[in-house]
C-alpha cells in the first residue's frame, strides 16, 4: 500500500522507535480551496510532528492528483463539492487503487459531530488503525475551529470599521446642518440612541438616509 515509501508503511515499525515516530511519517493530504485555512491546518499538523503534509488546491482530475501523492490520510473541508469524489474511493475499481474509509465510524458519534461542526471530514487508507490518527483529526478540528474564530474576528473588525465610517459621515452631516462641533454631534447621536434604545450606528444611518432624501 505504500509503493516505494517503505519508511511510511504503517505496518513497518522500527523496533526501538516510539510509535509516534512512525505515525509522523504518515502522508497527509489537505484538500481545501482556502489557502489561509489550509496553511493554519498545515502548521498545526507540523507542530504535532506530522511533516509530510501536502495541500491540493486544484479540483480538476482530483482522484489522479490524490494518487500521485499516494496519501495515508485525506482531509477535506465540507464546503468542497469534491468531497463526493472521495466517496468513490470506498471501493476498489479501475480508477480506485487504494480504498479509503471514513476516519470516524458508527461507534464514534461524538467525533462525527465534532468534525461536521468544525466543517471538516477525514478519510484514511483502509487498514490503518483509527486510534493512530486520532491526533490528526483532533488537530484538524481545533485548527478549523480556530480558523472560524479568526474569520469571525475579521468579519467583526470589518463591520466595526464600516460602522465607524457611517458614524463619522453622520457626524459631518450634523456639524454642517446644525453648526455643531464634532463632540456635540456625537453627543447628540448618542443621546438619541439611548432614548430610542438603538445603536449609535443605526441613528447615524438614519441621519445619512434622511440627508440623502432631503438633498
Amino acid at each position: 500500500m505504500t509503493k516505494g515509501r517503505p519508511g511510511s508503511d504503517p505496518r513497518v515499525r522500527c523496533a526501538n522507535a516510539p510509535n509516534n515516530l512512525t505515525d509522523q511519517n504518515l502522508k497527509i493530504v489537505i484538500i481545501d480551496e482556502s489557502a489561509v485555512r489550509a496553511a493554519i491546518l498545515e502548521e498545526g499538523l507540523r507542530e504535532a510532528g506530522f511533516t509530510q503534509v501536502v495541500r491540493i488546491a486544484e479540483m480538476t482530475n482530483l482522484l489522479a492528483r490524490v494518487y500521485a501523492i499516494d496519501p495515508d490520510v485525506i482531509l477535506i473541508d465540507l464546503e468542497n463539492p469534491s468531497r463526493d469524489v472521495l466517496e468513490q474511493m470506498f471501493q476498489v475499481s479501475r480508477v480506485v487503487k487504494r480504498p479509503v474509509a471514513m476516519f470516524v465510524d458508527q461507534s464514534d458519534t461524538a467525533s462525527i459531530q465534532a468534525s461536521v461542526d468544525a466543517g471538516v471530514s477525514a478519510y484514511i487508507v483502509d487498514g490503518l488503525k483509527k486510534e493512530r490518527i486520532k491526533p490528526i483529526l483532533d488537530t484538524c478540528i481545533s485548527r478549523f475551529n480556530a480558523f472560524a474564530r479568526l474569520q469571525g474576528e475579521v468579519d467583526r473588525a470589518r463591520n466595526a470599521l464600516e460602522e465607524r465610517k457611517v458614524i463619522d459621515r453622520a457626524k459631518g452631516v450634523l456639524m454642517k446642518a446644525k453648526n455643531l462641533t464634532e463632540e456635540e454631534s456625537y453627543a447628540r447621536m448618542r443621546r438619541a440612541a439611548m432614548n430610542e434604545n438603538k445603536k449609535i450606528v443605526e441613528i447615524a444611518q438614519s441621519i445619512l438616509t434622511a440627508a440623502e432624501m432631503l438633498k
Binding site: 464546503e79 463539492p81 468531497r83 463526493d84 462525527i112 461536521v116 471530514s121
Partner: peptide
C-alpha cells in the same frame, strides 16, 4: 448543501 456526502452525514447525525 454542496455535496451528497454532506447531506447524508448531516441527516445521519
Amino acid at each position: 448543501e454542496v455535496s451528497w456526502s454532506n447531506v447524508r452525514d448531516k441527516l445521519n447525525i
